[in-house]
Design a protein around this nucleic acid. Structure first.
Length: 424
RNA sequence: AGAGGAGUGGCAGAGUGGUCGAAUGCACUGGUCUUGAAAACCAGCGUGCCGCAAGGUACCGGGGGUUCGAAUCCCUCCUCCUCUGCCA
């Protein structure tokens, strides 16, 4: 959520930044927010004055009662009651203004950083780096959804029977490859100073709002009605929410966490031919890295996280490219995002395997995640996160790129984790 | 899941209707003293909102209510502890 003080102070810049994202009516929305905020302030001032008088009267009444001046006390009780009821209606007004203001602020996405390219859709994403050469596969190269059947390592039919579409079983060497990748990713992150956590995979409504999944992505998360819990779409949500309502000592920064969780996404209405096999699932595994950083250092941290993810891809010997997402393709809460895409040779397409983002103060504002500045005042921190990495598409790429008539070659670095070097 | 008890500032812990945003201790910050440190002593020390400021206002697990006045009384929800039950 954008800070209202910032909206007021940098009104023109913010409107411009939001328009870069192709948000219609940005200017009207911002104007409305400022008017409401004015209203909020004046209502509070009025209400505070009423309450001040009422509090004063109550004290006087108390004093009179003590001194036995009952009649005098009775005579001003009425005035106090009037003040109280007047204040009550002002409080109600305040609440309804607050709520409307809140709703409008929820509608505003984050403002893109100045390095973010303009553009409406993914065609305008900027390719900032490419690494590796896609392997030359023969005519008979198979997409991963055929390979998994051939070697019987991922079973969608079983998943359909036991749960439904998008919930596959991983079997045998498929399951072991999956486990190997999880351990590899966790170990690498821990080596780099990320503190491992195992968070709950259900979150409450407050957490959903704090990191911005709610209300924006309501309907995309699985919802447990009885408890009003949501299955997490990413470990970002529980891990970042560890720091909801926290004031962090600056010498503890940056805070670095890594966590492995399954992730659940309903992805309503987004299924099609290009999302076959492991390309898109309702449940998938992901190792996530999260950092909480001082505002002045957060872009260095973003770069560092992006480089870290690239190292993982290099170690897995996968050809990849890095995209600087354009404003129109940016996630709702992000100020800047780098996507890492792996080239899947048999499908002849790029698969997004990681998304590394700086949210600046957007999440911190909702989280009330702050540090104390040199002037002793609390200031919002910056939050960042990234996938490191999401498993299914990595598996898809490994299967497709490393296939040969002899079977599928496991990247060398993973062999100590898998205990085998070929799937055949 | 049932019965009982409890939730107060970073921590411990007082406060059961009036001047309480809240005693006290510890921790922390600054100062005095000291060659330095410790100890001792002095002072400061929650968060949000409104306000240029002075100041005002709200918050004692969350929400609602009673009252001129609520940390304190009532209702409700949540969480924790104890016992019983169940269970990886």
């Amino acid at each position: 959520m954008l800070e209202i003080t910032r909206i007021r102070a940098e009104r023109q810049d913010i409107v411009k930044a939001l328009e870069k994202r192709q948000i219609g009516e940005a200017s009207e929305l911002v104007d409305r927010i400022i008017i409401l905020d004015d209203d909020r302030k004046s209502t509070q001032t009025k209400n505070d004055e009423l309450l001040a008088e009422a509090n004063q009267l109550s004290k006087t009444i108390g004093q009179m009662m003590k001194e036995g001046r009952r009649e005098e006390a009775e005579s001003i009780k009425q005035r106090s009651a009037d003040l109280k009821s007047e204040s009550k209606s002002l409080t109600e007004k305040q609440n309804s203004i607050d709520m409307e203001l809140q709703q409008l602020l929820y509608k505003l996405p984050n403002t893109p950083n100045s390095d973010v390219p303009a553009g409406a859709s993914e065609e305008n994403n900027e390719i900032v780096y490419e690494h590796g050469v896609p392997p030359q596969l023969g005519e008979d190269a198979k997409p991963h959804w055929e390979l998994i059947k051939q070697y019987d390592i991922v079973d969608f039919d079983l998943g359909n029977k036991v749960t439904g579409a998008g919930f596959p079983f991983y079997k045998g060497k498929g399951a072991r490859l999956q486990r190997a990748l999880i351990n590899f990713f966790l170990d690498e992150a821990v080596k780099r100073g990320f503190v491992e956590v195992q968070p709950p995979i259900m979150i409450n409504e407050d957490s959903g709002y704090a990191t911005g999944q709610l209300p924006d992505k309501d309907g995309q998360m699985y919802h447990v009605k009885e408890e009003n819990y949501f299955l997490i779409p990413t470990a970002e949500v529980p891990i970042t929410n560890m720091y909801r309502d926290v004031i962090v000592d600056t010498d503890k920064l940056p805070i670095k966490h890594v966590g492995f969780t399954p992730c659940f996404r309903r992805e309503a209405g987004s299924w099609g031919a290009h999302v076959r096999g492991l390309n898109r699932l309702h449940q998938f595994d992901k190792v996530e890295i999260v950092q909480i950083q001082h505002p002045e250092k957060s872009y260095d941290t973003l770069k560092e996280m992006s480089e870290y993810v690239q190292e993982l891809l290099q170690k897995l010997e996968l050809p990849y490219r890095v995209l600087n997402l354009c404003a129109g393709d940016l996630g709702f809460t992000s100020a800047q995002t780098y996507d890492m895409e792996v080239f899947s040779a048999a499908q002849q397409m790029w698969l997004e395997v990681s998304s590394v983002s700086n949210f600046e103060t957007y999440q911190a504002n909702r989280l009330k995640l702050r540090y104390r500045g040199d002037d002793k005042k609390t200031q919002l921190l910056h939050t960042l996160n990234g996938s490191a990495l999401a498993l299914p598409r990595i598996i898809a790429a490994i299967l497709e790129n490393n296939q040969s008539p002899e079977g599928i070659k496991i990247p060398e670095i993973l062999v100590p984790y898998t205990g085998f070097d070929t799937i055949s």
